[in-house]
Design a protein around this nucleic acid. Structure first.
Lengths: 235, 235
DNA sequence: CTATAAAGTTAGGTAGACCTAACAAAATAT
DNA sequence: ATATTTTGTTAGGTCTACCTAACTTTATAG
């Protein structure tokens, strides 16, 4: 039994429709993915439309509604961002998604590549209790089968150990977790290098003279100065 | 990824909306519950409306659609029944519902009375593989936490041992599972006695002279002839 | 710095699933 | 057998979430 009818929930509850949940989830995904890497804050209507596989006009309409509900910051012709409320709720959806993925993989022996599709559905099941029970049943995992971090019940993502690229071992694979310089210049450079959150890097050689690094990025070879390598956090 | 879009599914797949699933599930529930007990076959618009908590006009509209999709046999002003297809699909929903209830109760330690609400949501998850995995994970249970039988993957309900009421032990509780006389006269009498599928009965005394029974039906005392007791199957 | 392309918006339309109000048919009760 | 009640239906309206087509604003390229 749900206690929030439509009128009620609009004012008191934060009960989103399944579709609204998908919009804020996509928004969180698209923003957090590039949060530290892009020059421009926020996401465009078209990007969202592509991600959600709907037409831009549909997105536009929904953005107005989400704005009304204080889930996004939206102004005509501008990029959209999640509000704090929106982000909190999106993290809850992500939490559910990743816990379900873990459940499917660890307990039901689903393959790594099969879990996502089903978790897309399960993430919308409305029951605080259920997801807490699943969390307990899985013994409070911190990462899902893809290695993505699972937010805790407060929406906090586990802190990951990260190391500056300038200080890692040679000949070992690392994944870019974050960057510590957020200036336009740096990020623009990162974009040019096609290095983003999630990019895999392998240090081939450290040049003793100036501390610069020879890097293998999925087959592509490139050289990064120590200054740049200092600002790339990997793990 | 779903391979049935709207146009496609209407003609080739039997992919029902969540709401359609709820309608056929309710229909199965309302018909099977009284199948052997009622004089009149089928379910009325109002009954369905009450069960689904919507208005009769909404039900009416949906019945036309379900009829188009060959899920129900519906004619204006007449009682509605499920087609074979409708019943098959409804049994799949029931199967999912009861397996999820079992999962919630047995694995996640949900209380008996909490499982239904969540299972109402989980039963609509679309994944053959998921439900088969859950079935396996639970080691192929035959009954859910409420004792209701779980249809197998072919939609077949487990056969239950049943005994004629005329042959059961005294002072032991039984539940009516079925009746073996389907004549109007008998069923009408059952209705008068307010004995239906699911009714709990306790035999207090067997009269040696004519084989009639003194019965306690939830506090009410009644006497049944041997002939009647022969036609009531309990378990 | 304008012309063209890309991105975003508006208007108007559809389908599903619900509603109310008014009406018709069937069941029942006198 | 008719009056009344119950049950079922129709018509017309709402909201969500989608669409297409036409249009406007912003970005990009010559």
């Amino acid at each position: 039994m749900f206690f929030c009818n439509r009128t009620f929930h609009s004012y008191f509850c934060h009960m989103l429709t399944l579709v609204e949940e998908n919009y804020i989830k996509a928004l969180l995904y698209l923003t957090s993915k590039d949060r530290t890497m892009k020059l421009q804050e926020g996401v465009g209507t078209n990007d969202l439309a592509v991600n959600l596989q709907v037409k831009p006009s549909t997105v536009n309409e929904m953005l107005k509604r989400l704005n009304e509900k204080d889930l996004v910051n939206y102004e005509k012709y501008k990029k959209v961002t999640l509000t704090e409320l929106g982000e909190t709720l999106a993290l809850k959806v992500i939490r559910k998604h990743r816990l379900w993925e873990t459940f499917l993989h660890d307990k039901l022996e689903f393959d790594w590549d099969e879990v996502h599709e089903v978790a897309e559905q399960l993430e919308h099941i409305r029951s605080e209790k259920l997801i807490e029970k699943i969390d307990k049943f899985l013994d409070y995992p911190k990462y899902d089968p893809h290695g993505d971090p699972i937010p805790d019940s407060q929406g906090v993502l586990p802190k990951r150990e990260s190391t500056r690229l300038s200080q890692v071992e040679k000949n070992q694979n690392y994944v870019v977790l974050a960057v510590s310089d957020t200036t336009k210049e740096f990020l623009k450079y990162m974009e040019d290098l096609e290095i983003a959150i999630g990019t895999e890097l392998l240090v081939m050689e450290k040049i003793a003279y100036d501390g610069s690094l020879k890097i293998n990025k999925k087959g592509t070879l490139l050289t990064l100065s120590q200054k740049v390598a200092d600002n790339i956090l990997v793990g």
